[in-house]
Design a protein around this nucleic acid. Structure first.
Lengths: 340, 340
DNA sequence: ATGAAAGCGCTAACAG
DNA sequence: CTGTTAGCGCTTTCAT
């Protein structure tokens, strides 16, 4: 592999001039610039990433802090990872994957290795030890999601308020008055998992504002739990006709429970899956009306915000909220006229 | 951040002694070793990854060459990525994600940056330009999957022969004599996508060996295509009672087509989903009997083989084949006695 | 507009 | 067993 010295020699200039030409760090006469680029071309020169990083103190590598598969991973995460990787590459950065439990002590070590310039944190919890550590070390980071006190921090997140509102509106406009909400588990809620907490809260507000009847329920992320939870919910509230579910893994159980009652979706129950991808929505019969998260956008935007923060001289910490998009499929329909 | 110089001063030894102590590259008296480690502890010293990489010419970073979402990504890929990342970290390596189309010219640039020691290539095609490039540059790599001529290269792959055999056996033992196989698309086959080609071939061999009747069909990776393909297959071969499907995305369409005929799974048709994860298998009604790929093992093993290759002095290029595991769920049952 | 030279923090000869 | 020193390939002052 040729180095800068080789290029400099061949172009008949000083080593530093090559560097400046490459980085545009200072004015170079058009003529020498040409010579240098020609020399690079001829030699097949490519700057050495490590050397550049060591000298400049900027590795141009960022880390994606990825949750370990506690709650099981979805397609969501995958799309996220790939879009983040692509966004990073588009900006000339590399993305390394750090898959760690939120309370891992390893994070500190990793950060202190000086390998990465900044960190993109996925699945931020309301009280997240990773965020505390990053703040303590004053290490640059952006979040996907938010923690309890996110002022002065950079993040992108789903606009859960708007998303929840869209779901409630959709059912309300179809004439549903009695609406159930099946959330993630109570444990997730207690642990302060953002979406769980935010949607739970907003659901009640939206229901109240629209003068509907609403009832919420937690549910573990499993088919069996979905089955149980739905049956319990309908035993307690037989008049429910609309259901908002933010729990992809519970959905097959719910569908099964509906069908075992001899009911059908959407004739007897309308169902909206919150923060759920098209891929999953099309696995079921009927296909699911969803509010689909703009995953790729979130991933790319998260990376952009982080890099912006790394390269900006001013200490502005950008934030962004993106709503999910309503995609109407087969699982929602007009509410029945007659009460059951 | 403290550096080695600081540690050396504090421990009262030479800079290099610290280095040797850290890397175990040469014998150090127990006493000085203690002093050095104490000093590191007190200062909170962590070796600088870039500096180490530059000096040693080994970055301890590997890249995962990730396919761009052409055919759409599955859960499979995700689990793969996370297990690879974890395996790498366990061995003291970092994993960067390079998400590129197989024919991208960018790969060459990335490799020449000198950032990574080796590459793990996912979704290898039978004729894969990435592999050709890696060979040309003599760049260390391992593959997930194999290309046409894989001798002398390091890879891990699913044992498709064994997997296909298991599927055929399973149906045969249930008394099915007329067995259909729904593959990925013809395009995937033509493009030399490994699983598509290998299973197609092995299916015929296994059917012949067991003296059964078999019929294969290609199918695009979509619900609609699954629906069409199934109907066509049953029009042409009405006696089919067992179906092997290696196309997760087509399955909902198949299930729908079965139900529209007034048939049921598994009473009228038994169905096995090949190389399909539990997560998907439990989304449907009935749940799917599958041959589940050992994804996490493949990811971890792939990383291990690559690192082994990087660190071994001898030029052995290890290979491994892992079979899928048969998990019987609700979609398979005894063949009907009577012909339809 | 260009050069010369001093590091960045570490590894690995070379020399005792 | 330990110390000295020359790089690794680049960025970035400081000169001119």
């Amino acid at each position: 592999m040729p180095t800068m010295v080789d290029v400099a020699k061949r172009a008949g200039v000083a080593l530093s001039t090559v560097s400046y030409a490459l980085n545009g760090t200072r004015p170079i006469s058009e003529e020498t610039r040409q010579r240098i680029y020609a020399a690079m071309e001829e030699l097949g020169y490519k700057p050495h990433a490590l050397a550049r990083g060591l000298a400049s103190k900027r590795s141009k590598i960022i880390a994606l802090l990825f949750p370990t598969p506690e709650r099981g991973l979805g397609l969501t995460e995958l799309e996220f990872v790939t879009s983040a990787a692509e966004a990073a590459r588009n900006k000339g950065y590399h993305l390394v994957l750090w898959s760690l439990p939120t309370d891992s002590s390893e994070l500190r070590q990793l950060l202190q290795q000086g390998l990465v310039d900044g960190v993109l944190v996925m699945e931020v919890h309301l009280n997240d030890p990773r965020i505390e550590l990053l703040r303590e070390l004053e290490f640059p980071f952006s979040m996907i999601g938010r923690c309890a006190e996110s002022t002065g921090m950079s993040y992108v997140d789903i606009d859960f308020d708007r998303t929840t509102q869209l779901a409630v509106n959709c059912l309300a406009e179809l004439g549903h008055r009695q609406i159930g909400f099946i959330n993630h588990s109570h444990e997730a809620f207690e642990a302060g998992y953002g979406p769980t907490v935010r949607v739970a809260q907003r659901f009640n507000e939206a229901i109240a504002a629209a003068q509907l009847h609403g009832v919420s329920s937690f549910c573990h992320d499993s088919v069996a739990a979905g089955y149980e939870t739905f049956n319990q919910l309908l035993t307690d509230h037989p008049a429910l006709s609309g259901l908002i579910v933010m729990n992809e893994r519970a959905i097959p159980g719910i569908i099964q429970a509906v069908s075992e009652r001899g009911w059908s979706i959407p004739d007897d129950i309308s169902l909206i899956s919150l923060v759920s991808s098209a891929r999953v929505a099309e696995m079921t019969l009927p296909t699911l009306t969803t509010l689909e998260p703009p995953i790729a956008e979130l991933g790319a935007l998260g990376v952009d915000l982080l890099i912006q923060q790394l390269e900006a001289q001013d200490r502005e910490l950008p934030q962004a909220l993106l709503p999910c998009q309503l995609v109407v499929r087969g699982s929602t329909g007009q509410a029945r006229r007659t009460e059951r």
